[in-house]
Simulated assay, not measured.
Amino acid sequence: MLHRSAVPETRRQRALTTVKRAAGEAVIRGWEVAIELGAIGPDTRRGKRFGAFGNGSIICFPPNTIFNERFIHIGEGTMFGPQITLSAGMVPGQQMVSDPVISVGDRCLIGKGSGIVGHLRVSIGNDVWTGHHVYITDQNHGYADLSLPISRQVMPERPVSIGDGSWLGYGTVVLPGANIGRHVVVGANSVVTGDLPDNCVAAGAPARVIRMIE
């Protein structure tokens, strides 16, 4: 008895293989076209909703959640990776008390799957790069009232600032009140809760300075 693999391929099997291969190529090509056409730039309809969207900047397709764009300002030559979250406030149409709520400078690179959620002021300088899945916010949940679910408690907003030329490693979390200086390296999976001076390397939860860059 012949092993199954030794049985000559029938015409029908060859045709099915050809169809599957062609379908796979079509899916890949379709996805490539979607990535190209779905990106958000300064001249796209979605891009024109932003308070500012600099030349040469792009939000890669597919984004995750983006709303209240008019309170978000983006500089020139900045790239946001796919699956990004950019939101001013918690719900679409929310009126904000400051403008811009979120500002991202020139030549920044915000990694895939990252989130920037602002309510008062999140300011990111020029030439700031991040790894994937970084989260930056200026508001957090409260928990002091035992009669209310934590999801319904909020703490006062505290502005966040990230200085020019800094690098935030994979999975970094930047919490309300954080003030990261210029030319700062933040290690992967760190949690920044306070001030980090210029020209330093910091890591940990909470992030602490582990060396100065001289």
Rank of each mutant, 00 (worst) to 15 (best):
residue 44 T to V: 11
residue 173 V to I: 15
residue 138 D to Q: 06
residue 52 A to W: 01
residue 91 V to Q: 11
residue 102 I to Y: 05
residue 66 I to G: 04
residue 140 N to G: 08
residue 82 P to A: 10
residue 119 H to P: 03
residue 31 W to G: 07
residue 76 E to L: 00
residue 103 S to D: 06
residue 59 I to G: 01
residue 105 G to W: 00
residue 86 L to R: 00
residue 5 S to V: 15
residue 5 S to L: 15
residue 172 T to L: 02
residue 95 Q to L: 15
residue 85 T to K: 06
residue 163 G to P: 01
residue 59 I to W: 04
residue 94 Q to V: 07
residue 188 A to M: 11
residue 171 G to P: 03
residue 136 I to T: 01
residue 64 N to H: 14
residue 48 K to D: 10
residue 7 V to C: 06
residue 86 L to E: 00
residue 60 C to Q: 13
residue 186 V to T: 02
residue 208 R to V: 14
residue 13 Q to E: 15
residue 80 F to S: 01
residue 131 G to L: 02
residue 104 V to H: 01
residue 144 A to P: 08
residue 94 Q to H: 11
residue 46 R to F: 12
residue 112 K to L: 12
residue 36 E to T: 13
residue 168 L to W: 01
residue 133 H to F: 11
residue 105 G to R: 00
residue 130 T to L: 06
residue 95 Q to M: 12
residue 186 V to R: 00
residue 16 L to I: 14
residue 47 G to L: 02
residue 51 G to S: 14
residue 83 Q to G: 03
residue 190 S to Q: 07
residue 207 A to L: 08
residue 1 M to Y: 11
residue 110 I to N: 00
residue 7 V to P: 03
residue 91 V to T: 12
residue 163 G to E: 02
residue 198 D to P: 04
residue 75 G to I: 01
residue 114 S to M: 05
residue 120 L to Q: 11
residue 177 G to M: 10
residue 146 L to F: 13
residue 132 H to Y: 09
residue 152 R to W: 15
residue 79 M to G: 05
residue 120 L to P: 01
residue 8 P to I: 10
residue 113 G to V: 05
residue 185 V to P: 02
residue 107 R to I: 05
residue 96 M to I: 05
residue 5 S to F: 14
residue 101 V to I: 12
residue 204 G to I: 10
residue 202 A to D: 08
residue 157 E to A: 10
residue 58 I to F: 04
residue 213 I to T: 11
residue 135 Y to V: 14
residue 56 G to I: 03
residue 130 T to G: 05
residue 71 F to H: 03
residue 122 V to C: 05
residue 210 I to M: 12
residue 153 Q to S: 14
residue 31 W to I: 13
residue 9 E to H: 07
residue 86 L to C: 02
residue 154 V to E: 12
residue 154 V to R: 15
residue 140 N to R: 08
residue 90 M to Y: 14
residue 169 G to N: 07
residue 122 V to T: 05
residue 82 P to D: 12
residue 147 S to V: 09
residue 139 Q to I: 07
residue 195 D to V: 13
residue 109 L to V: 09
residue 42 P to H: 12
residue 25 E to P: 01
residue 53 F to D: 01
